[in-house]
């Protein structure tokens, strides 16, 4: 039974890719380090265009521990409609330590569990990047130094796959946000400042999404 279901799925996938290539919405992964505001952005986009949210936001790192997808988000720009699937991914990092959660009033057991799930989440995010993403919105916290191993490695992977990428310098509502530092870090890409939380500069973000992924 499962075999037939698999077969049917793969056949329908193949036919879909044969006949509906152009109309298939592009799958855009929202990537970045933990706590950069990826879910806040995903929710902002989803609420603006579908009325739903993607997932819970939190100031605690690794709140998002499974990739979450919002399908068929229709964004209207200049009379045209661009349809994308948004994939909100767990924050990517090279180290996960439960002790970082203990500061957030969490019991050790829960912190350890969260740490394990976060690690699985990173593995999932990296897998999605390899298999299932047509474009990337890379979200950075503009108050942090963008020159990190994770950022360099992920941007490198994205470039090596020739995926279209939009770099967002998030949290411009905070005083110590430094947009110039972000654009200096990745001069080969366009950097767009925004505050996903406050909804600042979202119009430009949507313009660029339509231009890059439409």
């Amino acid at each position: 039974m499962g075999l037939f279901a698999d077969l049917r799925d793969s056949v329908s996938r193949v036919t879909a890719s044969l006949f509906a290539d152009d109309s298939e919405p592009k799958r855009i992964g929202i990537y970045g380090p933990p706590n950069a505001g990826k879910t806040t952005l995903a929710n902002r986009i989803a609420r603006d265009w579908t009325g739903d949210a993607v997932g819970p936001e939190s100031h605690i790192p690794h709140e998002t521990r499974r990739a979450r997808r919002k399908e068929n988000v229709e964004i209207e720009r200049n009379g045209k409609t661009v349809t994308i699937d948004i994939v909100d991914t767990p924050g990517v990092t090279t180290k996960v330590d439960y002790s970082q959660f203990l500061d957030h009033d969490m019991e050790k057991d829960e912190a350890v569990r969260r740490s394990r799930e976060a690690t699985e989440g990173v593995a999932e995010a990296m897998h999605w990047l390899r298999e299932d993403v047509d474009g990337v919105i890379y979200v950075l916290d503009a108050t942090n130094d963008p020159f990190t191993q994770v950022n360099t490695m992920l941007i490198g992977i994205i470039e090596s796959r020739d995926l279209p990428v939009l770099i967002l310098a998030n949290k411009t509502d905070l005083d110590d946000a430094n947009i110039q530092r972000v654009s200096n870090a990745f001069p080969q890409h366009e950097t767009i400042p925004l505050s996903a939380l406050e909804g600042e500069n979202m119009d430009e973000v949507y313009d660029k999404i339509a231009a890059y992924f439409g």
Partner: peptide, 30 residues
């Protein structure tokens, strides 16, 4: 070492290795 378990709740991740792997890790056990 795509994922190294340093101690329970402490992990080190080799991102390149995770990206290069065909398999997908869906659950970790201590």
């Amino acid at each position: 070492e795509s994922i190294r378990i340093v101690a329970p709740g402490q992990y080190e991740l080799n991102l390149m290795e995770l990206y290069d792997r065909q398999e997908y890790i869906i659950a970790l056990q201590e």
